[in-house]
Design a protein around this nucleic acid. Structure first.
Lengths: 208, 208
DNA sequence: TAGGTCTTTGGTCCTAGGACCACGTACCCG
DNA sequence: CGGGTACGTGGTCCTAGGACCAAAGACCTA
């Protein structure tokens, strides 16, 4: 931490800017080098001051936070952008995360936590509020597990025992054709190429 | 930073444990209070030592990292768990993120970045490697497009024109049953609930 | 023994019937 | 007029045959 981390504060409320500045001035190794009150100013200040980290509010008049973020990210050798927002609705911040924000914290963090966030972001990490992570990990990509039908699970269990289609047909009193149909559906749902991989999946999933 | 952050290091390689310990001993406000070499020991050490943060390797013999993570998270008042891994394959870490890891960094981070990560995690943030964020934000399932068969695309085109199953059957010289089968397969592949959503998809995808 | 053909096995796509279930609408009756 | 009922439509799951295609093994011959 020899060189201080140079920080630009961007928020349309002077009170918030002053608050953040006061927070950060007492932190070792962090130096607030400028402020901006809207997206356009933010971009020009980044070009002029070359900060290491930008603290950016999302809700701003004119060029909004997300757009400012995109423009800053488009600059050569862009700074890390830490979104500091007051609304607790994480879905609003997803576009920002996709646009390349290096982090996302609520305004109510305490000073040392904010400093930790700035240092982490400066060190190259991406830092998110737990809610956002939940949203990304759960809501967005629903991790839909295969959802096999009852019959398909039965067939898969047989496949996982190494049975051939003919054997499965006999044991479940089906035509071999039907077994093939089920196996085919299973492969599609599990997104695997052949019965061997399906069998491995079944074992891993504990369907043996 | 009055109280030091108490850290437990969990890795099956003594060399890595020693390396992390050496890294962290020179950091202010961070104290390594113990080590574990496998998942089971990890859980018991967490119970005994009550660390603030656990540095956890995912690849371990016996109870593996993800499982250890789950068990630690199940304890009352669990510590933050920072996954420190050597493999650069981010997909391997997604389950850990979903299991509630508070962070994920590669082993090749430099000491101050690791310290920043520990402080950020301890402050309640979630901290990820940019690759993992990309993976999460991109939607995990690599947006594999549906891969409808030729016939299914024909049927979908009819659906997108607002035709009923009976009309589609007449126009394609099929039984209504077969049309239903195709529609059903289409709904499954597009992961939508009914023909209306399928029609909207078709329009968006330009299959009209 | 090497190589080619023949057969089995696995798998896909398209077709389709039967048994059900859910939902909305129209109709009829008290 | 309100409510129940019957019907049409959409959809699911299970079943299965036919036409094909690919890969692997078996078998046979030079």
């Amino acid at each position: 931490m020899s060189e201080p981390i140079r920080v630009l504060v961007v928020d349309d409320h002077p009170v918030v800017r002053q608050g953040l500045r006061t927070f950060l001035d007492v932190q070792d190794g962090i130096q607030v080098v400028g402020e901006a009150s809207d997206g356009a100013t933010c971009v020009s200040q980044v070009e002029r001051l070359r900060p290491d980290v930008v603290l950016l509010d999302l809700r701003m008049p004119g060029v909004d936070g997300t757009e400012a973020l995109r423009r800053v990210r488009a600059l050569p050798d862009p700074p890390k952008v830490l979104v500091v927002t007051s609304f607790t609705e994480p879905s609003a911040v997803l576009p920002a995360v996709r646009a390349g924000a290096a982090g996302y914290v609520y305004k109510d963090v305490d000073p040392s936590a904010l400093a930790a966030a700035i240092r982490a972001v400066h060190a190259g990490h991406v830092l998110l509020h737990p809610d956002v992570v939940r949203l990304l990990a759960a809501g967005d990509a629903p991790t839909r597990e295969p959802a096999l039908t009852a019959r398909e699970r039965e067939v898969l269990a047989e496949v996982a025992r190494g049975r051939s289609n003919r054997e499965i047909a006999r044991s479940l009193s089906l035509s071999e054709k039907t077994v093939k149909t089920h196996v085919s559906a299973i492969l599609g749902k599990l997104d695997v190429q052949d019965r061997t991989q399906a069998a491995l999946y079944a074992v891993r999933a504990g369907l043996v």
